[in-house]
C-alpha cells in the first residue's frame, strides 16, 4: 500500500467521522442529503460482497466493516432517530436516486471485466460511487448556507477522491498491469477543466464519461468536487461563511 492510498483512506475515514460527529453529538443532519447517504450504503454493500470470502488484510476487513457500519448507521439516524430526523431538509433533498442507480446497473451489466455476480456488483458500486455525491451537491446548492461540519464532510470526501487518483497514477507506474485508461482519462480531465463547466454540465458529461471505463468514474467523481472546492477554498481564504453560487 502506498502513501497516497493510505492518506486517501484516512481522509475518507475522517469525512465519515465528521458526519457521525455532527449527527451523534449535535443531533442534527441539517444540510446532509439522505439520498447520498443511502447511495453510499448501497455502494458499500455491493462492493464488499467479498468481505467474508476473500481476505486481503486485517486493515482491509476492518475498514470495510467501518464503512459498512457507519453508512448504515447514518441512514438509520436520519430516518429513525427522533431528534435527528427533525433537522432533515426533506423538501430540498428531492433528487431522484433511481436515475443514478438504474443507469449504473445497466452500465455495469454491459461494461465489466468478468460476468459474475460479484464482479458486476463491484463494477456497479464503482460507477455508483462516482455519482452518489450528486444529491448532496444539489442540496448544498439549494440551501446555500452550509454549516462548517457539512462543508468539511464534502471537503474530506473530495480530498479522498483526489488522493485515490494519485494512488492510481502511482500504481500505474509501479504495477504494469494496473491501469489502462489513465492517460486517456487525464487528457479528458485537462480538456474539461479548461472549459470550466458547472455542476450540472458536469453531470451530463460524467454520464458520457462513465461509459468509457471503471477507472474513468473515479476521475469523474473528483471532477464533480472541483466546483465545490473552488468555493470552499475561497471562503476559507476570505474567512467568510461558505455559500455556493447558482
Amino acid at each position: 500500500m502506498n502513501v497516497f492510498r493510505l492518506a486517501g483512506d484516512m481522509t475518507h475515514l475522517i469525512s465519515v467521522l465528521v458526519l457521525l460527529l455532527k449527527i451523534h453529538t449535535i443531533k442534527s443532519c441539517a444540510g446532509v442529503s439522505l439520498k447520498t447517504q443511502e447511495l453510499y450504503a448501497l455502494v458499500f454493500s455491493t462492493r464488499y460482497l467479498d468481505i467474508f470470502t476473500d481476505f486481503t488484510s486485517l486493515y482491509n476487513t476492518v475498514m470495510k466493516l467501518i464503512f459498512l457500519g457507519s453508512s448504515f448507521s447514518i441512514v438509520w439516524y436520519m430516518r429513525h432517530h427522533k431528534l435527528v430526523q427533525r433537522s432533515y431538509d426533506k423538501d430540498h433533498d428531492t433528487f431522484r436516486h433511481q436515475f443514478l442507480v438504474l443507469p449504473c446497473l445497466i452500465l455495469a451489466l454491459l461494461i465489466h471485466e468478468q460476468f459474475t455476480f460479484k464482479e458486476v456488483m463491484w463494477t456497479f458500486s464503482i460507477y455508483l460511487e462516482a455519482v452518489a455525491i450528486l444529491p448532496q451537491l444539489v442540496l448544498l446548492q439549494r440551501t446555500r448556507n452550509i454549516d462548517n461540519l457539512t462543508g468539511q464532510y464534502v471537503f474530506f470526501l473530495g480530498a479522498y477522491r483526489s488522493l485515490y487518483i494519485l494512488n492510481w497514477i502511482y500504481r500505474y507506474f509501479t504495477e504494469p498491469h494496473y491501469v489502462h485508461w489513465i492517460s486517456t482519462t487525464s487528457m479528458f480531465c485537462v480538456v474539461l477543466f479548461c472549459f470550466g463547466f458547472t455542476i450540472f454540465k458536469w453531470y451530463l458529461i460524467s454520464v458520457l464519461l462513465l461509459t468509457l471505463s471503471a477507472w474513468m468514474s473515479g476521475f469523474v467523481q473528483t471532477l464533480l468536487y472541483a466546483d465545490f472546492f473552488y468555493y470552499y477554498i475561497n471562503s476559507w481564504k476570505n474567512n467568510v461563511k461558505l455559500t455556493l453560487q447558482a
Binding site: 492510498r5 476473500d54 486481503t56 475498514m63 464482479e119 494496473y178
Partner: peptide
C-alpha cells in the same frame, strides 16, 4: 475476483 486490479482497494 479479488485478483482483478483495484479489488484490494476500499
Amino acid at each position: 475476483s479479488s485478483k482483478q486490479p483495484g479489488h484490494d482497494e476500499l
